[in-house]
Lab assay of single mutants.
Amino acid sequence: TFELKGKVGKVVKIAEDHYLVESEGDKWIAYSDEKLSLGDRVMVVDVDGLKLKVKRIP
């Protein structure tokens, strides 16, 4: 299986209740415990079905 946990991506869209993150050339629906901005670099900390939980990284 394709393992996304630990992968790095970038926030490419902000929606009302989720983010769109591009990682490894694909776009994924993501959510975070912190507020993210367009262009933020993020790391995948968990995968919930087809949704990614991400956190901001420097």
Rank of each mutant, 00 (worst) to 15 (best):
T1I: 15
T1V: 14
T1L: 14
T1H: 15
F2S: 15
F2C: 15
F2E: 15
F2K: 15
F2T: 15
E3A: 01
E3H: 02
E3V: 01
E3R: 01
L4F: 03
L4Y: 04
L4C: 15
L4I: 13
L4Q: 15
L4M: 14
K5R: 03
K5C: 15
G6A: 01
G6P: 00
K7Y: 04
K7L: 06
V8E: 14
V8G: 03
V8F: 04
V8L: 14
G9K: 01
G9S: 02
G9L: 14
G9I: 02
K10Q: 08
K10S: 08
V11H: 00
V11G: 00
V11L: 06
V11D: 00
V12L: 13
V12S: 06
V12W: 11
K13S: 09
K13H: 06
I14D: 07
A15K: 09
A15S: 08
A15F: 09
A15H: 10
A15M: 10
A15I: 10
A15R: 12
E16C: 12
E16K: 11
E16P: 11
E16F: 12
E16Y: 11
D17F: 12
D17G: 08
D17A: 12
D17V: 10
D17I: 11
H18Q: 11
H18V: 12
H18N: 09
L20S: 08
L20E: 07
L20C: 09
V21I: 09
V21H: 00
V21P: 00
E22T: 06
E22R: 07
S23L: 15
S23Y: 02
E24T: 04
E24V: 04
E24F: 03
G25C: 06
G25I: 03
G25V: 04
D26R: 12
D26S: 13
K27I: 10
K27D: 07
K27E: 07
K27R: 08
W28G: 02
W28T: 02
W28V: 03
I29V: 08
A30F: 01
Y31P: 00
Y31H: 07
Y31G: 06
Y31T: 09
S32Y: 02
S32W: 01
S32I: 04
D33E: 09
D33P: 13
E34R: 11
E34Y: 06
E34L: 05
E34Q: 07
K35L: 06
K35C: 11
L36M: 07
L36D: 00
L36E: 00
S37V: 11
L38I: 09
L38R: 07
L38W: 12
L38E: 10
G39S: 09
G39A: 09
G39R: 11
G39M: 11
R41I: 10
R41F: 10
R41D: 13
R41S: 14
V42F: 03
V42H: 00
V42T: 04
M43K: 03
M43W: 07
M43G: 03
V44G: 02
V44M: 02
V44Y: 04
V44W: 04
V45N: 04
V45Q: 05
V45D: 10
V45P: 00
V45T: 10
D46S: 04
D46W: 04
V47E: 04
V47A: 04
V47Y: 05
V47W: 06
D48L: 13
D48W: 13
G49V: 08
G49P: 06
G49L: 07
G49K: 08
G49S: 07
L50M: 12
K51M: 13
K51F: 14
L52I: 05
L52F: 03
L52Q: 01
L52A: 04
L52W: 02
K53A: 04
K53S: 08
K53V: 04
V54K: 00
V54I: 08
V54H: 01
V54L: 07
V54C: 05
K55Y: 06
K55F: 10
K55A: 13
K55Q: 13
K55M: 14
K55N: 13
R56H: 05
I57R: 03
I57T: 08
I57E: 13
I57W: 11
P58F: 14
P58E: 09
P58S: 11
P58A: 10
